[in-house]
Simulated assay, not measured.
Amino acid sequence: MPRRTDALLGRLLAGLAALDPAAVWAHGSLAGGDYQEGRSDLDLVAVLPGPLGPRTVWAVARLHARLRGEPLAPLLHCTYLTPAGAAGPERRHLTWAHGELFRRPVTPVTRRELHDFGRVLHGEPPRALLPPVPDGELRAFVVRDQRDFWRPHVDRPALWRQDVWVDLGLLTLARATATLRDGRLISKREALDLLPGLGAPAELVEDIARRRYDDRSATPPDPGWTDRRAVLVRDYLAPAIDGLVARCG
């Protein structure tokens, strides 16, 4: 594991020790083999003894506040489950992400990732505490995510001038396609390789590859590229999502 990542996770685990976690797991890029230090999020799930009352919530908030000075801290996302609440896929769980505490579900995709290739950082493995995700539940979530979240957001032009929306929009489409077609979860690197075969414009694929995997000092595109890219992305994603949902919904 890269040095700065290892240092941050070490500090987090040391801080969580006082809360006696049953398990701490990594998912996403850190578990799936596509982790890029300083670029990829650090996606974690911790299982704490429940219930998570005010004192525990305050302890979690203080721990993350103490970690703010770490270089990779803005990329650290951690959701806190309890053994009694881990089985509920619709339940919203305490989560630290984007510098704040809020609540969100642990999606069927995340749960399947944890079962298939989750990385145990401490304690019990995911299969000991999380129920399996049936194929039908996974497929239904992926279709719903494309139809109800991504498709409406394609119609918001300002979003697609931002790198993060371009990257996640196209890569999530490719990952959804692989899941619905083959029943498997793929990494972002594999999704990038899949995009040309799904008809994505070569300029968009090259743009994502340059920013995610090439030297950051590489020459950026011309000033008008951001606006032109937004049009390309929206023109591609709208029919691509509609077609995927029509085939698999």
Results as ranks from 00 to 15, higher is better:
178 A>D: 04
172 T>G: 00
167 D>Y: 15
202 A>F: 06
208 I>V: 11
198 L>D: 10
166 V>N: 12
204 L>F: 11
161 R>A: 09
184 R>H: 08
166 V>Q: 13
154 V>A: 02
149 F>E: 05
147 R>W: 04
143 V>A: 00
191 A>R: 02
154 V>Y: 12
194 L>H: 02
183 G>I: 13
198 L>F: 10
199 G>M: 03
168 L>S: 08
183 G>D: 11
205 V>I: 06
204 L>Q: 08
145 D>P: 01
165 W>H: 13
180 L>A: 06
150 W>V: 14
196 P>S: 12
164 V>E: 04
208 I>Y: 08
160 W>Q: 08
156 R>W: 15
151 R>C: 00
202 A>I: 01
148 D>K: 15
174 A>N: 10
173 L>P: 00
190 E>W: 11
142 V>L: 08
161 R>T: 11
147 R>N: 04
189 R>N: 05
184 R>Y: 10
188 K>H: 09
156 R>D: 09
194 L>Y: 00
200 A>F: 06
142 V>F: 14
161 R>E: 04
162 Q>F: 11
150 W>R: 11
180 L>Q: 03
161 R>W: 03
173 L>I: 04
150 W>C: 04
170 L>H: 08
179 T>L: 14
174 A>G: 08
159 L>E: 06
196 P>N: 15
169 G>W: 11
207 D>T: 03
143 V>L: 10
159 L>H: 10
208 I>H: 04
144 R>Q: 14
195 L>K: 05
194 L>M: 04
151 R>S: 07
144 R>C: 04
143 V>D: 03
186 I>E: 01
180 L>H: 02
162 Q>K: 15
191 A>L: 03
176 A>Y: 01
171 L>E: 01
176 A>Q: 02
181 R>F: 13
173 L>H: 10
205 V>M: 09
207 D>Y: 15
178 A>W: 07
144 R>P: 00
208 I>L: 07
160 W>A: 13
170 L>Q: 07
172 T>E: 01
152 P>G: 07
188 K>G: 04
187 S>W: 12
143 V>H: 07
182 D>M: 07
167 D>I: 15
202 A>R: 05
196 P>T: 05
142 V>D: 09
146 Q>F: 08
162 Q>T: 09
178 A>G: 05
167 D>M: 15
199 G>K: 14
194 L>R: 01
184 R>D: 07
141 F>P: 00
162 Q>N: 13
149 F>N: 04
159 L>W: 10
191 A>V: 06
144 R>T: 09
148 D>Y: 13
196 P>V: 09
154 V>I: 12
169 G>R: 10
175 R>D: 01
171 L>H: 06
193 D>F: 13
164 V>F: 07
179 T>R: 01
147 R>E: 03
208 I>N: 00
150 W>K: 05
143 V>C: 11
186 I>A: 01
174 A>I: 13
154 V>H: 00
156 R>P: 02
151 R>N: 03
166 V>A: 13
175 R>K: 13
161 R>Y: 02
169 G>A: 14
158 A>G: 14
168 L>G: 02
206 E>S: 08
179 T>V: 15
174 A>L: 12
146 Q>E: 10
162 Q>R: 14
148 D>S: 12
203 E>V: 04
166 V>D: 08
201 P>K: 15
207 D>R: 14
187 S>F: 15
191 A>F: 03
167 D>C: 11
182 D>A: 12
152 P>N: 06
181 R>P: 09
